[in-house]
Design a protein around this nucleic acid. Structure first.
Lengths: 337, 337
DNA sequence: TTGTAAGCGTTATCAA
DNA sequence: TTGATAACGCTTACAA
């Protein structure tokens, strides 16, 4: 749309293009008045620097790639907003890709971003990603990658993760404190580290309180509504009814709640519920669901900062891990009055 | 990461750079064997074209901007995925910005995208946007913009919208057919055209069935859960209880449902409910909510196609409007058995 | 069918 | 403090 270049400004002011260029990058010496004149004229002429030319000569794309497994729950969009906030301020553009929880897509996305010469990538791996060799090679070749939320511990990179252990422990303690006795943990997706950490936190709470725990207290479920429904149905069929449930995921909790309610169980009088990864609906359902909320925007901001740090200090850089804290939002579903 | 250029290939094969370039853009004459040799060698050498150089000389950024009002509900993320699918195939990168339902942000986003020299913008205006002069000027200057979902009819551009009128009419007819008599419409955000269209559809159904309609049947509510709660409370306080409610938004419907349920009303026996803009939770709540679902991904795809069309046929281009159809998902909330 | 060379809009080196 | 000029990697007239 805009064809005014530094050449045009140079011609108009009878200066050289280098002077014009310098006026915009105030790291060089230039007379104050000249500089002001140039800036003023540029504005008048409606000049806008051409980012492509700049990128070409600087051999930097100022593009960042973000690869997430899904885009439908509010979680990742919120992380992305947080990250974008930081990148935008620092002059980076963000290219967002989603893998749809599929490893092939994920790999393609990363490669597409490489082809677009992004300066770095923020990556949250899909639940189906088991082979991370490509990412390891990429990192070893010096390419800046920061993992967030869904990480693989065998990859040596900076990472931003939620303290799943600690908050699962707190959530479980909350149930123990309410004097619930038969507490069940609904486990999330098996392939994700964060699922295991949450289960570990669940166990940790019992350990801390010196209460014995039975392995039947851990039930494989999943992260979807249907997974919770299925798990609840099985408990009812087996006539194995707990008095409290800690679900590793809100949706799963909500599915189980629906089935129990349908079968006449009252919440929390008969069965108490605690969820994890607060969704917007936690407080809207009946009864409102106690859940652990995560600092999504903060996660994005931190990840972005780590990546920029790495990009701008290539070479002298050691991977860092940021562990984020959350909040236990206690609501009716877990409190007998 | 990758420093192999066409020069390197040229040197290695004793050819000129132009021949190499031509091998990759098969619109020029070039001997088949040379071409194949070049492609093979390029691959072996690990050559990747530098997008910045290409963009600089072609004076095209191959960047597209998408500006949405929010990012939290699944609606816009899904539209974006659909759009990205098309753009990606055609070699465009997508820059996503969100205005947080704020006009100032929206304007800043559009201007930031202009500065990044995007080739075009997909825009869905915020609920607070009343002044669209900037966008009109931009369009008049020849800049390709396609509006989607949240549009302003005074802007002359291509647009992709949902047929709100038609589907609100269908949804309302569904209630009339069930023989509900006192039907209320909960209206959405007043500043959005789509709210008015849905109300028009509501009225249209009565007109079609030759049933008189009272203006008290339209109640100002909003699009949030709390808006629905508030509206329901008021009806209860006023002792003005309908036997069916058509809410212009699922969340609003769910808020109202919660209050009525809490006050002992049964759904659908006492009050039937129909929502709009299906959320993932429509079928998960109790009872499952009848709602109109929209083709979100399709909306993104169509908008992307229109924008590409416009970008690639600059000059000879007339704005088009695409009107999308949805689906009425009938569930328990609106059907007495 | 291939090569030469100018040019895209910047930055950056060197000289003045 | 400023200017001339090469360079970034590619495309594209024009020439051969």
């Amino acid at each position: 749309m805009n064809y005014i270049t530094i050449k045009d400004i140079a011609k108009k002011l009878n200066l050289s293009v280098s002077t014009i260029s310098r006026a915009f990058n105030n790291k060089y010496d230039i007379k104050k008045e000249t500089r002001e004149l140039i800036l003023k004229t540029a504005k008048e002429m409606g000049y806008r620097p051409n980012p492509m030319a700049k990128k070409l000569v600087q051999k930097r794309s100022y593009n960042i790639g973000i690869v997430v497994p899904e885009f439908i729950n509010a979680f990742f969009p919120e992380v992305i907003i947080g990250a974008q906030e930081i990148f935008f301020k620092k002059g980076y553009q963000v290219l967002i890709m989603q893998s749809n929880e599929n490893y092939e897509n994920e790999l393609k996305n990363v490669q597409a971003l490489e082809n677009n010469m992004v300066d770095g990538i923020l990556l949250s791996i899909s639940s189906q990603t088991t082979n991370t060799d490509y990412y390891k090679d990429l990192i070893n070749s010096g390419f800046p990658i920061v993992l967030f939320n869904r990480v693989d511990n065998s990859i040596e990179s900076s990472r931003v993760v939620f303290n799943n252990y600690k908050w699962a422990l707190f959530a479980t303690e909350h149930l123990i404190d309410q004097n619930y006795k038969r507490i069940i943990c609904l486990k999330g997706i098996n392939s994700l580290i964060l699922s295991h950490e949450r289960v570990k936190g669940f166990k940790g709470a019992f350990l801390k309180r010196k209460i014995e725990i039975d392995k039947n207290q851990i039930v494989e479920a999943g992260i979807n509504f249907e997974d919770g429904e299925r798990a609840a149905k099985k408990m009812i069929d087996d006539n194995n009814i707990p008095d409290a449930i800690f679900a590793c995921n809100d949706l799963c909790a909500m599915g189980a709640m629906k089935i129990f309610k349908k079968n006449g169980y009252r919440i929390p009088q008969d069965i108490a519920f605690v969820g994890f990864t607060e969704t917007k609906f936690a407080e809207l359902i009946d009864p409102p669901l106690t859940s652990v909320s995560q600092p999504t925007f903060e996660m994005g901001r931190k990840a972005a900062e780590l990546l920029i740090l790495q990009i701008e200090n290539k070479g002298s850089f050691t991977p860092q891990t940021v562990l984020l804290n959350g909040q236990l939002n206690i609501r009716e579903s877990s409190v007998k009055n």
